[in-house]
Write a protein that binds this DNA or RNA. Structure first.
Lengths: 148, 148
DNA sequence: CTTAGACCTTCCTGTCATTGGAAGGTCAAG
DNA sequence: CTTGACCTTCCAATGACAGGAAGGTCTAAG
């Protein structure tokens, strides 16, 4: 099976398959005489595993760990559970951060007329955040959600 | 005031101040005779505005819009409200996505012994997600949270 | 058999917000 | 004058991709 078929079958784009190979997440694929990458059903299976883990928000780094455990028949399920629960914590921290932002923005938007007048509490707050409104000013988020 | 003081006063790193200048988010700073950037309190004020907006999760692109509105005395508050509420929607979509992931992982982790035995429903699900467990299989998240 | 065009290959670039570092100039205190 | 803390510019890297150029290969139709 060539890379295009493998991409369709696994839901991982051909670009990404080559990328995962380049960073060592998956071993180099077999090649046909003409140099085309050639995939087996098992290879596609691995790619599906990766895609599913990505959909669950695992970083590629952690997917590598999960793959190793998956391949290791003697692994302890505790290891897997630890990785999963650790990921849950990371996700929940992120959720809390986002919820703080939403709360602030909703509060500000509620106080905004939303008409043609120039007054706008949203801009006013961005300008000089009112210290008397703790709901508007959650703990400063040092790291943003761009880096999982 | 040099860039270091402006950075301390605004909470935006010197690196980022130069970056914001380079992408045109802020105008080029005045320079001293020796070429050092020189900032006024007003400049710092703008930087604080930017930092606050970043803390609220606005993309730099949107901060540019907000800055333009902030500077525009004749702006309509409706414009600001629209941007803010639009951002709320984006954030809430992201939150729902993350919550779906957490729910799946929690469910899987609950079913995992977490001992030395190799059996692990987490890996088993990544392997071949059970179609009979809708809770485990939320709507596929196409875009991940890496790009706000 | 030839040809079109759909696929494959590698390699390079850009994204976004940010951090890091190197090489070199400037400033203030001792 | 020296020290070291600052400033300057420029270049590279991060993660997880997407896009594209240049060139080779495969397949089906004519």
């Amino acid at each position: 099976m060539n890379i295009g078929k493998a991409a369709d079958a696994s839901g991982v784009s051909a670009k990404m398959i080559r990328y995962y190979e380049s960073i060592g997440l998956i071993p180099a694929a077999h090649r046909t005489a003409s140099g085309y990458r050639d995939y087996t059903d098992d290879d596609v299976h691995v790619l599906q595993f990766i895609r599913r883990a990505r959909d669950l928000g695992f970083a590629v780094e952690h997917i590598g760990e999960l793959l190793a455990l998956w391949r290791d028949q003697g692994r302890a399920s505790a290891d897997v559970k630890r990785i999963a629960l650790n990921h849950v914590q990371v996700l929940e921290r992120k959720i809390a951060e986002l919820q703080g932002m939403v709360a602030t923005l909703r509060t500000l938007a509620e106080r905004c007329h939303g008409d043609d007048r120039p007054d706008c509490p949203i801009l006013a707050d961005l300008d000089a955040p009112a210290p008397s409104c703790p709901e508007c000013h959650p703990a400063p988020a040092r790291r943003r959600f761009g880096k999982p």
